[in-house]
Design a protein around this nucleic acid. Structure first.
Lengths: 226, 226
DNA sequence: GTCAAATCTCTTGTATACAATATTATAGAG
DNA sequence: CTCTATAATATTGTATACAAGAGATTTGAC
């Protein structure tokens, strides 16, 4: 889980631009100016172009030949689609985890659930987000399918900013915690179908959650164009 | 489906290297020599490095900081894992397609099935592979979830060389065709669960198919080290 | 005043030069 | 002979220079 420190400028730049994108510093469709950004970061265009490619690979920007890199915020429909796939991937993780999870993994999962609840009690949002992420990553690992785990983690990461807004938008945390416990319980009983169903519910956008996301999306949209 | 012609050297290089990787011209773990390849292709290192990044994004090579780009053939376990995820993604496509598929899409799917059968009758393998790919891509589109479709297509593409070997290894084509018809039938009846199940069976590696893949993998492995 | 064509500028794509790090070879000590 | 430290070499990472295409602007015709 610990990131290895890289001395590559391109990687650093990539992270900084990603942060800027995620915090809504660019509007949708905006072109990323190579020379301006290079100047701003005090580097040449070379590492910037590498960063652009990397960002394009994770879908945050699109590269158009001889036109440049353009910010690509998912529209609302795409966002729903992405959450739908995320739900299914997590369900798959849960399904498999119910059979493959080890005692040590169950212990670690239990610990993050408690840490989440403690964070809520303290009102420490950042702590909650961190522990929540750990919870999900542990689940991916517990699937026993490392490729699945990496794909799930990739999409999870991509959805991070939207999930965060969604949760912050209203007091969904207690409900989310109950779902965590339901997932844990299903794993404990080695009930694959229940685990899959619990995770699908936990992640999917349906009912009021749909409205929550829409609200948070509008909020982001207003940031973007502002 | 038609690829737009790009004049970027980097893109051309990327495709050529990908082709070389896929046809087993590099051994697993082999380092791709920037200067040698640049010379070989008659270009500078710049577009080569871009191609490396792109290849890394699709998982064909891994980039190690200040060490270079290394060929990353999936080992057998990883391959099975990837097919497992592919099966689930296709099942998801089928599940959704059973509800969303249009008459025009059904027509197009029927046409590719017939084209597949005609290709088998003619003994035209390349034709079969092309039509089979179209069949699956049509299914992805029919899911009505464009993000899902793009993710499925991405993984499908990544698995292409292995699927090809697997099919060629033995006379699985007739069975595969029966499964295509079963999928079509499920879609026609708007039976989501049946469509999902049929696709899971079609793609998943289980029973004898496991042995087929293992055999073809050994074949590739011998190519790689040879 | 509007439209089209040509030119000019700006931006990306590629090549090359330079810097910094990893790998290998070599020399020396034990 | 082996192990370690140091130097030499090779390779990647970054900067800069150059080439080429896209977009903007100006000029001209109608």
């Amino acid at each position: 889980m610990m990131r290895v420190m890289s001395t590559r400028i391109a990687d650093t730049i990539r992270e900084r631009i990603e942060q800027m994108i995620v915090t809504g510093e660019f509007s949708d469709g905006e072109r990323l100016d190579e020379v301006k950004l290079a100047e701003q970061f005090g580097v040449s265009r070379t590492p910037l172009r590498e960063a652009f490619q990397s960002l394009a690979a994770s879908g945050l920007v699109t590269l158009e030949a001889r036109r440049g890199a353009f910010i690509r915020h998912p529209d609302f429909v795409e966002l729903v689609e992405m959450f739908e796939v995320m739900a299914e991937l997590e369900a798959m993780c849960g399904f498999r985890a119910a059979r493959h999870v080890t005692a040590a993994q169950m212990h670690a999962i239990a610990r993050t659930i408690e840490a989440c609840e403690a964070a809520i009690a303290k009102g420490d949002f950042d702590e909650y987000y961190r522990e929540n992420e750990t919870f999900h990553h542990l689940l991916y690992e517990a699937s026993g399918n490392r490729f699945l785990a990496s794909e799930a983690a990739r999409l999870h990461r991509r959805l991070k900013p939207y999930r965060r807004l969604q949760l912050r938008a209203n007091g969904r945390m207690p409900q989310s915690m109950r779902e965590h416990r339901a997932i844990y319980s299903a794993l404990e009983r080695n009930d694959s179908k229940a685990a899959a169903a619990a995770l699908r519910t936990h992640v999917a956008i349906q009912g009021e959650r749909f409205n929550d996301l829409m609200a948070s999306y509008r909020q982001m949209a207003s940031l973007k164009t502002g």
